[in-house]
Amino acid sequence: MSSDDDLTTVRVDQFFPHPPAKVWRALTEPELLAQWQMPGAGEFRLAVGHRYRMTSVPRPNTGFSGVVEVEVLAFDVERMLAVRWRDADPAHPADWTITWRLEQEGRGTRLFLVHEGFDPDDPAQLMARRIMGGGWAAHVLPALGQALERFP
């Protein structure tokens, strides 16, 4: 996770014993995304400007409504994917960029995640950063690893 002096960003990296092409598929193929990300991830399309919605449990203590509006910002096949996440409720200030970067490491892939845009002056955003920082490492990346084990 990011250091405590950078309250605007969460950084996590994870090694997967799978080649970048396979990890890329898990990040970008809708039927595979649906296996490990929030409901709605199956609506993903690898096209800059594509928008879709994902749903999760609302977290009032962080100002999260439970609905994420996602927009694909940029990609470089098998190397990088950047998306914007905004809370669907305009009253909630969440507006983040999630960037996945893949690097071959031996026969596997080191996946770097940068989740940025937290407001360090907003206590709810700081709580969201703490929760999401732990959640990426403890829940999301392990779920991705399990999905990678299930498909060829």
Rank of each mutant, 00 (worst) to 15 (best):
S3I: 10
D4M: 13
D6S: 14
T8D: 03
T9F: 10
D13R: 13
Q14K: 06
F16C: 05
F16M: 10
P17K: 11
P17Q: 05
P17C: 09
P20E: 04
A21D: 14
K22A: 10
V23P: 02
W24Q: 02
R25P: 01
R25G: 00
R25W: 00
R25Y: 00
A26K: 10
A26Q: 02
L27M: 11
T28G: 00
P30F: 08
E31Y: 03
L32S: 01
L33K: 06
Q35Y: 01
Q35M: 05
W36G: 01
Q37E: 14
M38S: 15
P39S: 06
P39D: 04
P39H: 03
P39W: 00
G40W: 01
G42W: 12
G42Y: 06
F44S: 01
R45K: 12
L46T: 01
V48Y: 00
G49E: 00
G49K: 00
Y52H: 05
Y52C: 00
M54N: 05
M54V: 13
V57G: 02
P58N: 01
P58W: 08
P60L: 08
P60M: 05
P60W: 10
N61V: 13
N61D: 14
T62P: 02
T62N: 00
F64S: 07
F64H: 06
V68S: 11
V68N: 12
E69M: 03
E71V: 07
V72H: 05
L73P: 00
L73I: 05
A74G: 10
D76S: 10
V77L: 12
E78S: 07
R79V: 12
M80Q: 13
L81I: 11
V83F: 06
R84M: 06
R84H: 04
R86D: 04
R86T: 15
A88I: 15
D89F: 06
D89Q: 07
P90Y: 12
A91W: 09
P93W: 05
D95T: 08
T97F: 09
I98N: 11
T99A: 09
T99V: 09
R101A: 14
G106N: 07
G108F: 09
G108A: 01
G108S: 01
L111K: 06
L111P: 11
L111G: 06
L111S: 07
L113N: 05
V114F: 10
H115T: 02
E116N: 05
D119Q: 07
D119A: 13
D121Y: 04
P123V: 09
L126A: 08
L126E: 08
M127G: 07
M127E: 11
M127V: 11
M127A: 12
A128C: 14
R130M: 13
R130C: 05
R130V: 12
I131V: 15
I131K: 10
M132D: 03
M132A: 09
G133L: 04
G134E: 02
G134Y: 03
A137L: 01
H139W: 10
H139G: 11
P142M: 09
A143I: 03
Q146I: 08
A147K: 09
L148R: 04
L148K: 06
E149L: 10
R150A: 09
R150F: 00
